[in-house]
């Protein structure tokens, strides 16, 4: 209990420090700490799957993305932004935000007893999927449509980010050129970590059917293992016009939809798995989706092509 209190206080302190930080770099560094502390809170809430995702995506990939943006914006003069609100306005905004937080807090305190839960239904139906991890069961079977839509959102995000390519850059290699490093810790890590990281990612994907883990966590680790050598200048990302790249990003959702349609034909419901086939089909979807999401997440962090001036 005391540990929980300390953890909650630390998270709130880091959050406040992050939004009040003077420099964007400080704010992003604090935000990464916030993400890591938040994943500890997820562990305390018995949501290990979410904790893994928060650490990998909320802290890791978001941190890399924001730090990269800070670096690219630092070299230019601060854009003439809107003037910050005055003192009176700031106090008013503070009061309004406190009211929002207080209302949400009141809702938390007034939640019904006993708490409504779908856990018994999940426990009763989990054996039909052959899975042992209830969260994977929900993601891949009971609420598979949400997961399908989400994989489509990631694909759409890649298309949107690419569509921001400036004139003359279309089809080229994505992302800004990375500084060439002579030597240093990043270069060493970028050489040593990827083989280990790939093994860890495959393990997390494989245990995801019975234990915390799964495709999102594995995909985030794989994406990081691609981003690391990219940031160290060891590998150049492929041109976005490359057919294999586009196929890899799209194949996950396409396979998912195809298996869903097959379920509609044979079982009479979209995304229904034939009895006894749930587990192998889910594994196929998970593995293909991991590849697609890993490449898509990395491409999202790398950004659109930047033509040389």
């Amino acid at each position: 209990m005391i540990a929980d209190l300390l953890l909650a206080a630390a998270i709130l302190a880091v959050a406040v420090a992050s939004i009040l930080a003077r420099r964007t770099f400080t704010a992003v560094a604090l935000f990464i700490a916030y993400g890591l502390l938040l994943s500890l809170a997820w562990v305390r809430l018995s949501a290990i799957d979410v904790a893994l995702t928060e650490a990998a995506i909320g802290a890791g990939l978001s941190g890399v993305l924001l730090l990269g943006a800070v670096r690219r914006l630092a070299s230019r003069a601060e854009a003439p932004a809107n003037p910050p609100p005055g003192a009176a306005m700031t106090v008013l905004i503070g009061i309004a935000c406190a009211c929002v937080a207080a209302a949400l807090g009141a809702v938390i305190l007034l939640l019904p007893e006993p708490a409504p839960s779908l856990a018994p239904q999940v426990a009763a139906n989990l054996p039909t999927t052959g899975l042992g991890n209830p969260v994977t069961g929900v993601l891949m079977s009971f609420r598979a449509l949400d997961t399908l839509l989400e994989s489509a959102v990631v694909l759409l995000a890649v298309i949107c980010v690419w569509s921001l390519t400036p004139d003359g850059g279309w089809g080229g290699a994505p992302g800004a050129a990375q500084p060439i490093l002579g030597d240093g810790p990043l270069l060493l890590l970028a050489r040593i970590l990827p083989p280990l990281g790939i093994v860890v990612a495959v393990h997390i994907l494989w245990v995801g059917k019975d234990a915390p883990g799964g495709k999102f966590q594995a995909a985030a680790i794989l994406a990081a293992m691609w981003l690391l050598p990219w940031m160290a200048g060891l590998v150049a990302p492929p041109r976005i016009a490359a057919r294999w790249l586009r196929l890899t990003v799209a194949v996950g959702p396409v396979v998912f939809i195809a298996i869903g349609l097959a379920g509609a034909v044979t079982e009479g419901a979209f995304l229904a798995y034939p009895p006894g086939w749930a587990m192998p089909l889910i594994l196929v979807i998970e593995i293909v989706l991991t590849a697609s999401i890993a490449v898509a997440l990395a491409l999202l962090v790398i950004g659109p092509p930047v033509p040389e001036p």
């Binding site: 809430l45 018995s46 949501a47 799957d49 979410v50 995702t53 928060e54 995506i57 909320g58 839960s117 779908l118 856990a119 018994p120 999940v122 426990a123 009763a124 209830p134 969260v135 069961g137 929900v138 993601l139 009971f142 609420r143 949400d146 997961t147 989400e150 959102v153 990631v154 999102f216 999401i293």
Partner: peptide, 19 residues
């Protein structure tokens, strides 16, 4: 309940939401 530390349905939706 049912042997789980939390309701897995909202947990799965949160996972989707983070991505």
């Amino acid at each position: 309940g049912a042997g789980f530390g939390g309701d897995p349905v909202p947990q799965a939706i949160i996972l989707t939401g983070i991505v």
